[in-house]
Each structure stands twice: as C-alpha cells, then as structure tokens.
Design a protein around this nucleic acid. Structure first.
Length: 276
DNA sequence: GCGGAATGTAGAT
DNA sequence: TCTACCTTCCGCT
C-alpha cells in the first residue's frame, strides 16, 4: 500500500522523535519477540529510507545493528504521544495489541513517544552486509539526494517491457509505485505502454525529474499515508492527473483517460497527451 | 453488515 | 506461481 514517500516520512519521524533516545522495545503480537528483546534498551542512532525499505540503526551492545522493515501492501506505523493521542498514521486506530508486531517507546512523562508497527511484510534484524546487499539490489531512489538516475536508465533502455511495468520494478526506480508509474509518464508526455528501449535518454531525464518533483513534494506534505477514492482529490490537490481517473476527461486536453491492466494492475494514461 | 480489493514484494513451492 | 501480511476502504446487500 505505501509507496516510497510514505517510508521516507516515517524515517524522518524516527529521526526527529526517537533518534538519540534509548528505546523500550516489545512485540505484543509476539511474532517479533526475540527481535524486540534484542533491541530493548539500545539507542537509536540513525533512521534511513531507501526506496520502500526502512533501516533503523541501533547502538549499544553487540548484535545486529539494523532493524529492517518493509511494509508490504498493508503495513504501517502509528505514532502516539505520552497521553496515547495519535500523532501520525491514520490507520490502525484500534487499541488492540494483538496485531502490534513491534512497539518502540522512548522519553519520559509527557515527552514519551511511541511508534507501533502492524501488518508489515518484513521486520527483521540484519547486519550491515545484508543492508548493503539490499541497497545494491535497488535502483536509484528519486527522493534521496545522492541518487544516480543513470543506473535506472541502464536497466530501462535495454528492456522490451513496457515503461509502466519498468517503473514498478524496484531495481529501476526504488520507491516508485502505482501512483508514480502513471503520473510520471504523463508529466513526461510518454505512453506508459511504450517499451523501455523505445524511450530516449532525454525522455528518461524528464521522467526522472517528474519522479523527483512529485515524490519529494509528497514527502514534504507528510502525513499522506494513503489516499482513498473519496479523499485523494482533496489531499493531493492538483498533483494527481490520472490515478484512478479512468474515463474522466484529461485535465489538460479533455480527452477521456484510458486504462488497462499492466502487470496485473491498472495503469492510466491520456491517449492525446502521451504519444506512443 | 459483509466480502473483496488495494499505493507491494519476499519467500515458499 | 502462490501465499503471507491481517490493515482500511468501498461497493454491495
């Protein structure tokens, strides 16, 4: 469910609210009991997102230094203040502990902050070597300042797969999801069905620039954990032109927006604004 | 109130 | 290729 920008927002929250603090860790659900025990009493020293992967680094005694979390389709973090008030994360409101894979808490009294993880596909302790392997596997992340877009280009321009399929591949663009695989080709005026190898380098640069602009703006907005059918128009404003707008007139030229299955999921495009 | 889909992908088969 | 994750949202009764 969450795309890369959501993971970056959570990484920032960890950096701002828990970094430098010794955390109490627990796994009410039990599935991460051993991992939580290994984290309990250690200090969070760094929080970083790479694509849709979150890495939290812990100091202190020996043991794997990194917590690696991938939210998958339905996972998410909820944040609470000392009084139990929800600070961020609109989902998982229930007080039920039975699904809380990991709870991290730090601070005293009114300054207590709690982060709760539910529904994650992956929650594990790993060493630096393992993290380096994951980084190597991933393509450039448009949200990160040091991303090398040419690495994505190398993988894209040799492929006969459709652009819309390639943009979902995390070894081409780390962090892109269904929203951006539609919106970036629209911004770059390219039909998402066009094969990767028929995309020129200039066009790739336009796609990359659009990904950077839109995904970074989404991080700045923060909070937008998920956009629903009824509210995504309001919460994303004018920034989504195509996503879930099949059949509606294109907001640039008025041509009805088309859609089709691509890789088992829908992709939308404007047949007039996005030449094949 | 109920059932299926969804902004995803690692790991099992 | 299938399943896990086990959530929220949405459309249907």
């Amino acid at each position: 469910m969450p795309e890369g920008h959501v993971v970056h927002v959570d990484a920032r929250r960890f950096g701002q609210r828990l970094r430098g603090h010794t955390v109490r860790a627990s796994s009410p659900q039990g599935r991460f009991a051993a991992g939580a025990a290994a984290l309990d009493g250690r200090r969070l020293t760094a929080a970083e997102a790479y694509g849709k992967h979150l890495f939290l680094r812990f100091g202190g005694r020996s043991g794997p230094p990194l917590l690696h979390v991938h939210l998958g389709l339905i996972g998410g973090w909820n944040w609470y203040d000392g009084s139990g008030e929800l600070l961020a994360g609109r989902r998982f409101r229930g007080p039920d502990d039975s699904a809380v894979r990991l709870r991290l808490r730090a601070g005293r009294g009114a300054a207590v902050v709690t982060a709760e993880l539910r529904g994650a596909m992956l929650c594990e302790l790993i060493d630096m070597e393992h993290a380096a392997m994951i980084h190597t596997r991933l393509g450039p992340d448009p949200i990160r300042g040091n991303a090398d877009s040419r690495r994505g280009w190398e993988r894209l321009h040799r492929s006969s797969a459709a652009l819309g399929t390639l943009l979902l591949r995390q070894d081409v663009v780390a962090g892109a999801g269904l929203i951006w695989r539609c919106e970036a080709p629209f911004a770059a005026h390219i039909d998402p069905r066009r094969p990767g190898r028929a995309v020129t380098e200039i066009e790739w640069q336009a796609i990359w620039a659009a990904l950077q602009t839109m995904m970074r703006a989404a991080v700045r907005r923060g909070g937008a954990e998920r956009t629903t059918r009824s509210e995504h128009r309001a919460s994303w404003g004018d920034e989504l032109y195509l996503f879930r707008r099949g059949g509606e007139p294109c907001r640039v030229c008025g041509t009805p927006i088309e859609s089709q299955q691509m890789g088992g999921r829908l992709v939308w495009w404007c047949p007039s604004c996005q030449p094949y």
